[in-house]
């Protein structure tokens, strides 16, 4: 048969499909990430030299290697303020992109995002009222006083096998997520409405929009661990994610235990999202649009998409946070405002 006629309309294949090309892409992204971290630490009200940034970092990691020749305030700015913030931005950005890509595959909808399961609204409702101990809220999310357990109960209802042994449908999960979101946004609105003073309102809204403003070193551990293991786990499971993103039944015929896999992966993504939201609030767009854009670059195969999403998400959010800091300096914009604007720009253009 003549296939020449068909091949004329071949669209350009994504870059980096070959193993070599993909390795180069990952290395390149890692390099850009490193560069971004350096630049993001340098940029701010007090300008700093790149050499200084890494010397301070080295000094902190391996004390005694370098004799400090910088002022204490410089060290404080670099190590106590900017580094945690930039790294947190990287972790949150990478995490949201990975979770977003996973969530889109799980519900087979390219418009899904990490907050689909209602985790962020829950966090905002809990975090509102100016609770300063954010990490503690992660544990609230996990188990402590019912917030998470109620949520998981809701999720479990969505994931449990349907009547007559029919596999649970992801729509049920999606719908429970949406329902949970509504419940918690009602709660959040109630908090705002009922707030005693302007500060409290501001605090709630701050969480709704998301910010990396309060980053501290001790906030980084859990998100870093969660992101590392989450991304590893998901990348290892990428074949199943691929199959599931093509179709529920297809995945089953390709040897994926779909209900169990979906249950596990939803739980993992909910946990990851919970951790991320607890440290940064609900930052939009990253988890929704970034996986979408990256698929154009590396294709839909999650073995490539997920590592690239982790790196690109980190780079992206680091730079967005730089913008958030400098646009109206010395004031700071909630980062969610910028991501939302970028998202709107991308979607419409």
């Amino acid at each position: 048969m003549s296939q020449a006629a068909h091949t004329s309309a071949v669209p350009a294949r994504p870059l980096a499909v070959t193993r070599l090309g993909f390795g180069a892409l990952l290395a390149g992204l890692a390099l850009v990430l490193l560069l971004s971290i350096t630049l993001a630490v340098m940029i701010g009200p007090v300008p700093l030299a790149p050499g200084l940034v890494w010397r301070v970092a080295l000094h902190q990691v391996v004390p005694g290697l370098i004799t400090p020749d910088w002022a204490t305030f410089q060290q404080n700015i670099i190590w106590e303020i900017r580094f945690p913030r930039v790294l947190l931005g990287g972790l949150v950005g990478g995490g949201l992109a990975v979770v977003g890509a996973t969530m889109q595959a799980l519900v087979r909808n390219p418009l899904a995002d990490p907050y689909l399961l209602g985790v962020s609204s829950g966090r905002v409702a809990r975090g509102g009222g100016g609770d300063p101990a954010r990490l503690q809220c992660v544990w609230h999310l996990l188990a402590r006083d019912g917030g998470f357990s109620r949520r998981t109960a809701r999720l479990r209802r969505g994931l449990r096998p349907g009547p007559a042994g029919r596999p649970a449908h992801h729509r049920a999960t999606h719908l429970s997520g949406v329902a949970v979101s509504y419940v918690f946004s009602a709660l959040t609105n109630f908090l705002i409405y009922n707030a005693d003073d302007g500060e409290e309102v501001k605090s709630v809204i701050f969480w709704m929009l998301g910010s990396l403003g309060g980053a501290r070193w001790d906030y980084l551990g859990l998100p870093a661990l969660a992101l590392l293991f989450g991304t590893l786990y998901l990348t290892v499971q990428a074949r199943s994610l691929n199959a599931l993103s093509v179709g529920e039944e297809t995945a089953a015929t390709l040897g994926v235990d779909t209900s169990q896999f979906r249950r596990q992966t939803f739980a993992l993504t909910a946990l990851l999202t919970g951790v991320l939201v607890a440290v940064s609030g609900g930052i939009g767009f990253v988890g929704l649009m970034l996986p979408h854009i990256l698929r154009l670059l590396v294709g839909a195969d999650h073995r490539r998409l997920l590592p690239v999403a982790a790196l690109a998400g980190a780079i992206f959010l680091i730079w967005v946070d730089v913008l958030a800091r400098v646009v109206v300096a010395p004031q700071e914009l909630p980062i969610g405002i910028i991501t939302a604007l970028l998202g709107a720009r991308f979607s419409s253009g």
Binding site: R13, V17, Q104, A105, R108, N109, P110, R239, S240, N242, A243, S245, V246, G247, E249, T250, T253, L254, G255, V256, R295, G299, A300, D301
Partner: peptide, 26 residues
């Protein structure tokens, strides 16, 4: 068991080769 279904839905843009590679997953 190899299965050929009617469904070929999904909105994710896999290449033909990637689609066939999924058959190796089991």
């Amino acid at each position: 068991i190899g299965v050929v279904l009617q469904e070929h839905s999904g909105e994710f843009d896999f290449s033909v080769r990637e689609m066939v590679f999924m058959g190796r997953a089991p």
